[in-house]
Design a protein around this nucleic acid. Sequence first.
RNA 1: GCGGGGGUAGCCAAGUGGUCAAAGGCGGCAGGCUCAAGACCUGCUCUCGAAGGAGUCCGCCGGUUCGAAUCCGGCCCCCCGCACCA
Length: 876
Amino acid sequence: MGCYSTPITISKILNGMHIGGVVATQDQNEKFFITVAWPYPSGAMHIGHARTYLIPDIVARWKRMMGYDVLFPMGFHLTGTPIVGSVERIKSKDQSYLKLLKEVFEVSEEDIKRRLEDPESFARYFIDESPLGYKKGMVGLSLSIDWNRECTSIDPQYKRMVEWQFRKLYEKGLVRKGKHPVKFCPNDDNPVTDHDLLEGEGVGIAEFTLIKYRGEDGAIFPAATLRPETIFGVTNLWVNPNVSYLKVKVGEENWIVSEECAKKLPFQGKNVSASTKKISGGKLVGRSATNPVTGKAVEILPAKFVDPGNGTGVVGSVPAHAPYDYMALKDLGSDIEPIDVIEVHGRGNATEELIAELKIKSQHSEKLEEATKKVYKLEFSSGVMASNIPGYGGKRVSKAKDEIKAELLENNFADVMWEFDEKPVQCRCGAECVVKLVEDQWFLRYSDGEWKEKVERYLDELELIPKESKEYFRNILSWLEDWPCTRKVGLGTKLPWDDKWIIESLSDSTIYMAYYTIVPYTKEMDPEAIDDEVYDYILMGKGDPKELSEKGLDEKLLKKARESFVYWYPLDVRYSANELIPNHLTFMLYHHLALFPKELAPQGIVTFGMGVLEGRKMSSSRGNIYPISKAIEELGTDGTRYYLTCLSEPWQDFDFRRGQALTTSRIIERIRTAVKNGLKFEPNEHKPEWMDRWLLSVFQRNVEEANRTLAIYQTRKGILSAVDEPFRNLRWYLRRGGDRIEILEDWIKLMDPFLPNLAEELWELIGKDGEVERESYPEFDSSSLDEDAESREKFIQDMMEDIAKIVAVALRKKKKDEKKIRVVIAENGEGKEWERETLKSAIPIYEERFGMGIKVEEGGKETKEPLPGRPAIYIE
RNA sequence: GCGGGGGUAGCCAAGUGGUCAAAGGCGGCAGGCUCAAGACCUGCUCUCGAAGGAGUCCGCCGGUUCGAAUCCGGCCCCCCGCACCA
């Protein structure tokens, strides 16, 4: 297999031509600033990444040829924990990870030791050095990136900007401290993300209300519930007679909870004094406790369904609305009557009905789970509080729930604790995770009404592609809450006013597009000398560069940085994955709108669909990736570009199939061959006189379509119009006796944004100097349109199809020897001359195609009269 | 559960009221070129049909309409996101 196009790229690299990239110029043309989500270099660059970076490259190249000053930069995101985690795994000789490095990422034993045992060096390895790394992949794909702007999220100058950004937000009151429950590994003493879990991915955290029933001796039985509104219907409490309970001191109170619960409470901000006083559940049975709201005493009864590992191990019993409670009372033979506190319009008690319907016989029935869910859902969505409930009668359950809970908490009648809504949740280290309440976490206040509204309003001005994503954004805003923006571990920028925290990775990369505009200048600055005033000047135009220069910075450099920012900002289009809409892209809008005037917020967002490989999710850890280096080797640079582009539009999902890619990408070779052959043609006198006009005409239609679709970011349609269609037309033209390829120059220009290496190669081949990419992109010229020529060729093609049908039917099971085709044109048709001339020109291709002689006649005394424009066809 | 997207021929994928048996690509088949293979070129690729026609077809079921892949209602199935994580 040939690397069709790579030799040119490589020769450019050798000639020192900025490794295939393109340096942005500020020529005071119209500017176009385009960025794409920067990669996190924790492994090999694969074909999915390749498409992400290729699509904006096509647009950047097109805009450049359209005469824009284009800025298409690239940086690398190193913030966060995965790289640090990978390095840890190497140090601890994690065999499965080492295997991945060696076998999938093709890292040598030596490089693992030499380069990968430090996070920054690890990242640099996958950015610069690895043959499977990002930069080699991007260069190999001929991406026209301005590498002068390369930067990372841990460059000191970048960190200064993030510090500036956070202090600004802090001053505006948009960052504040708060509490939040998280998944936490007690063994590692660290919060865990879903990614770090052995089991329990996607498990949610549910907030239980602990209702404080006071026992006779003053000890509190905190009954855990998800339904505080049922407190009015509690008839008794449940404990499990077979488990141990502890009396522990929580703050000033004595609580009786299960042993498991006593271990969890300290993680949830409860001040718990250790206690060794065990009480068996059985011993609690028979005691009584007082309902804090109704003041009624209720008895403590035994129930085996009570799970000591969930909540407190103490449960309030609401037989009217909880199937478990109902059955447990039945099992005990108790005469306690259920108390209805929720009504569902138009039906009786849902609990009793379901128990009857599902034929549930005891508290051990498996069907109780199902019944419980149904009752809960029904009563939550369509239930109202019974009319006799003071203060809440008639209120919707969904509303009353929160109000009652708030009231209970306010009166110290209740507390809260968190539990996973599914179990088990197990850390990679094997330990069982707990819910921890992080107390001094910093939050970005995305729930802030004013801030949120700004974003919401801006959505209407923003160009969103595909436009469906606007609905998606709106939906995100409807539920987006405050975002915990700091972490204890990982790479990144320290929170400027509280340096035990590191700014979390999605929060430190919300305005980095602004940073690209100034990298060439900040690189020259001493990071120590950069303070908030410097960024106030560069990004907001405040202050005087002359005064600032006294900090030890070059005044000219400062001015240039400011000019560059002003020149390029705002961002014209942002490319990113649609899975980043719920976080990064939304945050990007928030931060821009908080820090800059609306005019400087990103103008457009294009979101990518998902990619899969051979129908399966791409996954480095499972080895299901197709590294970009391999793609370039097997398909060639332009072959890879071609296949990735025509696979689907950017926002659509795609399935990369290597086998298909191998055959599809052969088009590069076919075009090359066709052009080479086309150059050798001798003038052909049999060519119909309109053929050249035809070729120019249909080519103009391709030009129009290519420009139209690129302008709306439809690169798939774009490549079909710029590459496939002209090629198909060219082949028809040659088949029809065409002999001079007048469109060649423009066609090469047209294909350049998509297949730059092939374009350059052909450009040279046809004897042109310089580079195609410096030429102007062809623009639609309606004066070349030729309706007559187009309808003639259309007529010929339609007739060919009709003849083929008739030949197939007429000659079924017969030999075509000595048969002839006779085409009879209507003699009364106005266009009979036109028809005859057109059809006669096609005789050679018809004869070749059908292997029979063909006659074109007029009139005739056939049974069926031919219609004008619809000649009759006879096989005889 | 909530929200977003989707189900079109062997596969991928265009297609938003008639011009649709449905573009294009891949695969398959046949022919040409070639010593041969690859590449390249041409044609065929739902069923029936001795004349350009007919039938069936776009996840399933109904409806609107002279006419539905396309519009409306209901159902089934698939993918993605639901947060402290890049």
